[in-house]
Design a protein around this nucleic acid. Structure first.
Lengths: 153, 153
DNA sequence: CTGTGTGCAAACATTTTGCAAGCAG
DNA sequence: CTGCTTGCAAAATGTTTGCACACAG
């Protein structure tokens, strides 16, 4: 499996089209709108948020939330997007066109900061090996209070 | 805040009673049944699973799933239990009477293996510092295929 | 006794599915 | 044309809340 790293929108779009074709699926205006919206906004979206934003940016497309869910699942299945689970509830998605990274999450404002750390990745592999686990993926989330929210008190 | 580490059931029960008293709450048979069931079974439970097990182990108590949810939330608020979020949906709880640890999760059988790694904890603190984050908690989950499931193929 | 706790049913929130019509290939 | 895709409404999950009765303190 090759890594998908820092793709341009065109490359991303082509990858998506290739995947669709390979699975006998169709390239539709809604699917493109969702992909483009994810690409243009580097935030992490809940399906609901993304749905609202797509509706705002493509008002004449009348996209349903059902389609947003279906498309996010499709992207995730094909490793073009990743979802994060949260403590309380819900899920947030991000495009998988960036190198692997983990997340710092502010418990007050909900802001997500991304970071990368090679040493941690190395340790994770060592741990997996120790337990005879064949590692496929991992999730690391650090919870805390971001600089901004610390200053507000 | 003092750590709650490897408590015996009696210690755990006392901690729970103290918390209840401190908040003007009452010690009930259902709350004890839920705590005991969590203690006796070192697994990670979804509220639903736990509900079924409590019903089985205390058939004459007629515990409702509502109470299981309420008690789990109560335990979590008071740091006597912790919840893990999962990729797809749902949440699993574990008693917080063990030293801090992270989780290896088998994507095939769903089995959760616990591990501890001091080096990773150290790195996490360094990262938080770098981003001016005041760390309150963290979550690390490694996904993969456990030894058992690897052998089945 | 007082007020918290309980189970039940209903309400909610989130995600998935069935269906008839629309549209990509 | 064929059959995948869509939006809608309904269903399915998972979790929370309102209420009247039960019971701990």
């Amino acid at each position: 499996m090759e890594d998908i790293e820092s793709l341009s929108y065109d490359e991303l779009l082509n990858t998506f089209k290739t995947i669709l074709k390979a699975n006998g699926l169709k390239f539709t205006a809604q699917r493109e709108a969702i992909l483009k919206t994810l690409y243009d906004n580097p935030d992490h979206f809940t399906p609901e948020n993304l749905y609202l934003l797509v509706k705002k940016q493509y008002p004449n497309l009348n996209t349903g939330i059902t389609t947003v869910y279906r498309t996010l699942n499709l992207l995730e299945e094909n490793k073009l997007a990743t979802s994060l689970s949260f403590g309380s509830q819900g899920k947030k998605f991000e495009l998988g066109n960036k190198p692997h990274h983990d997340h710092l999450i502010c418990e007050i404002c909900g802001k997500i900061t991304e970071f990368e750390d090679g040493q941690i990745e190395t340790l994770q592999h060592q741990i997996a090996k120790k337990y005879n686990f064949k590692l496929t993926d991992h999730l690391m989330q650090l919870y805390g209070i971001c600089k901004n929210c610390q200053n507000k008190n």
